[in-house]
């Protein structure tokens, strides 16, 4: 095999692995949007909080890693519920754009608060996972784990949504919010639970990202925008669409970055996004 093609294949496979984690990122955001109709602009900052939680619990307080992970997920889940209760609920009746902006304010707040509390230094867990060799290709173990966990989390989520009463209510509430009380459902409670679930997914993402990236207060900016675009590309609130869009984006980034520089991969992905918006403004799977 031509060496060039091996590297290209490596890029494609790495893109596939990246797609898994991007899909997980998109899932939480889509879940929240689908149910509550609000985009958490501060979603990536919630993940940042989760990453710091893992770092502090594991490296500073020396908790075992699994416990640090579990706690971080719980912390971000609580954060999601708190975000809804304190910030979103008061503006639910306001203009949609205010809901978008208020979470943007939270973005500023979390980013600055992290700077204040944790400082601007880059931190990492100090765990180095090996590179796996397949023939002439190298794949990152951390990415492979992230891919597997992301896939498992998504399957668990879809089973939950399909099978459980709460999951069915979450799917139902996005279709007709007003009559939910007739079913005995308290919509506020569903919103709170959904926000906690969205937070928990952000927490899972945090655990996976902390294995691959350094933590710093502005880390959210490096994957926040891409997550929004994936969700819009797939049709906001459309989880299947988000899933597919994540893999498309990941290929642009990975293969584009292979031919050019990694930023150009992102530029290509973003331009592709803009182009698609003109072709199908409702997203690739948008029906309406």
């Amino acid at each position: 095999m031509d060496i060039f093609d091996v590297f290209l294949l490596e890029a494609v496979l790495n893109g596939l692995l990246l797609g898994g984690i991007l899909a997980l990122l998109a899932l939480g955001l889509n879940l929240v949007f689908g149910v509550i109709d609000v985009v958490w602009i501060c979603y990536a900052e919630m993940i940042m909080i989760g990453m710091y939680a893992v770092y502090y619990l594991h490296n500073v307080y020396h908790w075992p890693l699994w416990l640090a992970f579990a706690s971080a997920i719980a912390i971000v889940a609580l954060g999601g519920a708190a975000l809804h209760h304190l910030v979103i609920r008061p503006v639910l009746a306001a203009e949609p754009i205010n809901q978008l902006l208020v979470t943007g304010g939270v973005l500023f707040f979390l980013q600055a608060a992290a700077t204040l509390v944790f400082g601007v230094e880059f931190r990492n867990l100090g765990i180095r996972l090996p590179q796996l060799q397949f023939g002439e290709m190298y794949l990152s173990m951390a990415r492979l784990i992230a891919f597997g966990v992301a896939l498992a989390a998504m399957i668990a989520m879809s089973v939950f949504l399909k099978r459980s009463y709460l999951g069915t209510a979450i799917r139902a509430i996005s279709q007709d919010r007003q009559i939910m009380p007739l079913m005995g459902v308290n919509p506020n409670r569903i919103f709170l639970v959904t926000s906690a679930l969205g937070g928990a997914l952000a927490g899972v993402a945090a655990c996976l990202l902390v294995l691959q990236y350094d933590i710093h207060p502005a880390i959210g900016l490096s994957f926040g925008p891409i997550t929004f675009l994936i969700c819009v590309l797939g049709g906001l609130g459309n989880m299947m669409g988000g899933f597919i869009a994540a893999f498309i984006f990941a290929q642009f980034i990975s293969v584009g970055g292979f031919f050019l520089h990694v930023e150009w991969g992102y530029v290509l992905a973003f331009l592709f996004f803009i182009a698609v918006m003109f072709w199908k403004p409702q997203g690739i799977l948008g029906g309406k």
Binding site: T168, R171, Q175, I179, M180, P181, L182, G184
Partner: peptide
């Protein structure tokens, strides 16, 4: 509150049926 009425034994079939169309 509205969501507790059903637990008192009152169920309503709303005007225009209002099913969840995509369930």
């Amino acid at each position: 509150p509205a969501y507790e009425v059903i637990s008192r034994g009152i169920a309503q079939v709303p005007e225009n049926r209002r099913l969840f169309p995509r369930l």
